[in-house]
Amino acid sequence: MSEVSLEQESVTSIDFIRVKKKQRILNFIKGIMFLMPSILLFSVFLFYPMIRTIYLSFFLTDNGGVPTVFVGFDNFSSIFASPIFQKSIVSTFLFVLYTVPGAIIISLFLAVIANEKLKGIGIYRTIFSSTMGISVAAASVFWMFLFHPTMGWLNQLIGTIGLEPIGWLTDPNWALFSVSLSTIWMNIGFTFLILLGGLQSIDSYLYESADIDGAGYFYKLRRITLPMLSPTLFFVITVTFINAFQTFGQVDMLTRGGPQNETNLIVYSIYQEAFMNYQFGTASAQAIILFLIILVLTFIQFKLGERKVHYQ
């Protein structure tokens, strides 16, 4: 009797293991099925192109982009020796230096004043976030008129206070500044919206207890608002940074990289090299440089973001 029951037990446990194994395989297949569309598209349009770009950066190509001669790191040494690419790197960093602090400071100011509980504040919030809904192409058209040498409002404005008109987009000393100015305007909507969200999530209890202690407006701003906002601020800064390195549309619309390559930012430089000069090898090398810059920035965001830069 006891032998029989023992046998039965071992049979069921084998069954159980088999069922469990089958279940596990089934679960795996199910999981992959749900993820398959995303994985497939990521592979075709993200991972493969990345590897392919690295590959292309070691070759000379024909006009259609088919690799012909392996040249090792020659493409990289040639872009770094090229005064045009050097200028492009300098312009890109200058552009980042103008636009990131510009957009963050203005948006922060707007978010702070729009966070007050006042009547009609919703209208102001809508206006401040509106530039997020305006495309690069349309925004560039708006600004192109403002920058117009004779009819443009900017020159008319400085004309009324007796200054010489400026060639906003044609003067090499001004072009990068002008493109940056229009970019800051385009970015304000998004950064404002995120920062306002950050401000609204700060516990009002903190302000109430500060009020009881008789703290002034700017004291509260410095000691409560800014420290509590630091994670949001940090996120917005990285996103703006990365976006700035990816700028293309406004350059294409406003200046086409000119005058004298002053506004030839890195993505525009890649575009020109690949799709106008058909130098896919050196263009890929430039793309790798862009990729590395973004990689470092995202990495910093993940590393620092983990620590949640709260309090001080």
Partner: peptide
């Protein structure tokens, strides 16, 4: 990891694809 690959850096092969 996909968030680290900017689309702008991979336009050349994507265009060819």
């Amino acid at each position: 990891a996909t968030m680290m690959v900017p689309f702008e850096a991979s336009i050349i092969p994507n265009f060819q694809t």
